[in-house]
Design a protein around this nucleic acid. Structure first.
Length: 637
RNA sequence: GCUAAAUUAGCUCAGUUUGGUAGAGCAACUGAUUCGUAAUCAGUAGGUCGGGGGUUCGAAUCCCCCAUUUAGCUCCA
């Protein structure tokens, strides 16, 4: 009886008897057999030596597939645990999964792993790779597994075993002297790992719970070639160059200092100019799209925060209360209660809805000291907040408009790729099921109507409503969350919001809470990292710098500056008596988009020599030609 | 908050192992130079070594506490 194997491309192969996945790969090609890591037989991921005994769909996984990479890294994590156990026999192993980029393994050890330890572990891993130890799968009963790990004193493994139902078959993987409880599959042998690098160590709570013991984690990554590893390390270096904290310092955009306080940002003139341009654009676009701008205070009475519920469920993130004339006040961690108070200041007819209230609202939240990170995570930040209050009939239209508006706004900043997520009802939630269903459905319908791809985060919504998040995809593959569009079934109740319908009765409106940029701080950081500091021309604090070669050209430079300023460009002259090469170098380091080099020749001819940052010399031309080039990057000039 | 590492001139860093009161490059300032597409030369000035306490004849260096930063964990715009 022969068996028929169907490959992912639909092609079929027939074999007279059962063969292993590895034999199948070898039959397809030697190269595939060499690259093969594991097989997926009828959607079941398994080791390469698994026999295929009947007709099946089979996919061979290599490092090129997501699943292949994942188990490659997982196998490397096992290898690292083996090296650690050999070098530090007293250390207990816990778990070691693959992550998006590489793997980690958590160990129970009193001391932290030092850099020297890492180097030793890495060296031992390389020895074990040379030995080309096979990963051997063993299936056994729970009792047998308990016996094995009890003998070895691996109490974390026993804890995991304890949670597995008694009847289940358990698998272990052994390579050399190391045995680990593992579902698998794994790569055939350690020799498949050609390049490995241990990257860093840190603490991590057992099972991710801060009440548990803190374990010592080691992160690493591995590749099937040294070249791939080098490429990855280069990528990390590139990411470091784009770090907004470094760019913020180099370009003199912002600072954060001890004396002012952690997580509180000082915006320097250059950064403030960029922020001003972002905010001005943001306001204009909101006004064009039917939003009303509002301003609200930075503090509010405790009564307000009781009504909103923040004192109940958010107090640990709020700054402590302050007392003035026997009244308690809190600094605002959110703008919503103020916006809703504005709505509630008047009666509203259904004819006025939707009401869209927008504000660049600065809030303060107490964030635990360990989470602060440059501008990405701060304690005082400005949300580009808006609340849309509408009737049930208006919901789907509003959601659709919002998605389009958000994407348009983001694209204007040069962002091109987006990742969209729809988050649905979590277990603990407020609001009626019917409302959740309706809101979730209108979010989903809008995404589909617009033909946008999105992922569903099941149960990932806020307790008060479902949401859509938009993340921006970076030039080097990282994703940054900005936009969030959230329904809120909680606050309209708490604030007893109403509108008068056509039936002359009071109704509860729907409310959507949204931020497009997220926070100005995080957005600014994302913008910097995305563009590597080379902002689009319209956002550059200084757009053009005129560089006279000698003092003799200064008067001519001033007439040019006048023309550029009249065209709406932000333009300055570098008067210093430095050599032209030096002035150009400085302007390049400051990432000034355009440079205008003026020597004797240009002054006599009435021309100018234009240079574009990142491109170099564009040649000699007259003013009109220069403006044409500059306008091609920004039609508003 | 937790685990670990770090904090020295405006910036980037050396000096800490083996205690003997600080050093470089860039930037700044002064002077010279007037130059053609990423660094001209010379000179000057700049630091109670994150803060506080302790050990010591003597602390940037050793010990303790605190603050901040970084990498993670947990949490989030």
């Amino acid at each position: 009886m022969s068996i028929v194997i169907t490959l992912p491309d639909g092609s079929k192969r027939e074999y007279p008897a059962a063969i292993t996945a590895l034999e199948l790969a070898r039959d397809i090609s030697e190269r595939l057999a060499d690259a093969a890591l594991a097989a997926e037989i009828n959607d079941q991921l398994c080791d390469l030596d698994t026999p295929i005994t009947e007709d099946a769909r089979v996919e061979i996984h290599t490092f090129r597939t997501d699943k292949g990479r994942e188990l490659y890294w997982h196998s490397t994590a096992h290898l690292m645990a083996q090296a650690v156990k050999q070098l530090f026999p007293d250390v207990l192993v816990t778990i070691g999964p693959a992550i998006e980029q590489g793997f980690y393994y958590d160990f129970d050890r009193e001391e932290a792993f030092s850099d020297e330890d890492l180097a030793r572990i890495e060296a031992r891993m390389k020895e074990l790779i040379k030995q080309d130890l096979p990963y051997h799968r063993t299936e056994l009963s729970k009792a047998e597994a308990v016996k094995i790990f009890k003998e070895r004193g691996e109490r974390y493994k026993l804890e995991i075993l304890d949670e597995i139902p008694d009847g289940d078959i358990i698998s272990t993987y052994t390579q050399g002297d190391f045995i680990d409880l593992c579902r698998g599959p794994h790569i055939p042998s350690t020799g498949k790992i050609k390049a490995v690098k241990l990257l860093k160590t840190s603490g991590a709570y057992w099972r991710g719970d801060e009440k548990n013991k803190m374990l010592k984690r080691i992160y690493g990554i591995s590749f099937p070639s040294k070249k791939d590893l080098k490429q990855y390390l280069d990528f990390l270096e590139e990411a470091a160059k784009r770090d907004h904290r470094k760019l913020g310092k180099d370009l003199d955009l912002f600072s954060i200092n001890d004396e002012v306080g952690a997580g509180l940002v000082l915006w320097h003139p250059n950064g403030a100019m960029i922020r001003h341009l972002i905010e001005t654009y943001w306001k204009e676009e909101h006004l064009k799209n039917g939003y009303k701008l509002v301003y609200t205070p930075h503090v509010g009475r405790s009564k307000l925060w009781e009504t909103s519920g923040h004192l109940g469920f958010y107090q640990e993130n709020m700054y402590a209360k302050m007392e003035v004339e026997n009244q308690d006040y809190y600094i605002k961690p959110m703008n919503c209660p103020f916006h809703l108070s504005i709505y509630n200041a008047n009666h509203h007819s259904y004819r006025e809805l939707p009401v869209r209230l927008a504000e660049l609202g600065t809030v303060y939240r107490y964030e635990r000291s360990g989470v602060l990170h440059g501008l990405m995570r701060v304690r005082g930040f400005t949300q580009d907040d808006a609340h849309i209050i509408c009737t049930p009939e208006q919901v789907s239209d509003e959601v659709e408009k919002l998605i389009v508006f958000s994407l348009d706004l983001l694209r204007h900043f040069g962002f091109k790729e987006f990742l969209l997520y729809l988050s649905t009802k979590p277990d603990a939630a407020v609001g009626k099921d019917a409302d959740w269903a309706m809101a979730t459905q209108s979010l989903q319908a809008s995404l589909e109507k617009l033909g946008l791809e999105y992922d569903v985060d099941e149960g990932g919504g806020a307790f008060y409503g479902p949401k859509i998040d938009i993340k921006i995809k970076d030039a080097i593959g990282r994703a940054w969350q900005c936009t969030t569009i959230q329904f809120d079934f909680n606050l309209p109740e708490r604030f007893d919001m109403q509108y008068i319908g056509a039936d002359n009765a009071a109704h509860r409106p729907y409310m959507i809470h949204r931020a497009v940029l997220g926070s100005v701080e995080r957005f600014f950081a994302t913008l910097l990292e995305y563009h590597g500091g080379n902002l689009p021309l319209w956002l550059a604090p200084l757009q053009l710098l005129i560089l006279p070669i000698t003092d003799a050209q200064i008067d001519y430079c001033k007439t040019l500056q006048e023309r550029f300023l009249q065209s709406g460009l932000r333009c300055e002259i570098d008067y210093r008596s430095e050599k032209i090469g030096y002035k150009i170098r400085e302007a390049e380091l400051k990432k000034i988009p355009f440079m205008c080099i003026i020597g004797k020749k240009e002054a006599e001819e009435g021309t100018l020599s234009l240079r574009r940052h990142t491109q170099g010399d564009l040649g000699t031309m007259d003013m009109e030609q220069a403006l044409t080039i500059i306008r091609s990057e920004n039609e508003n000039l």
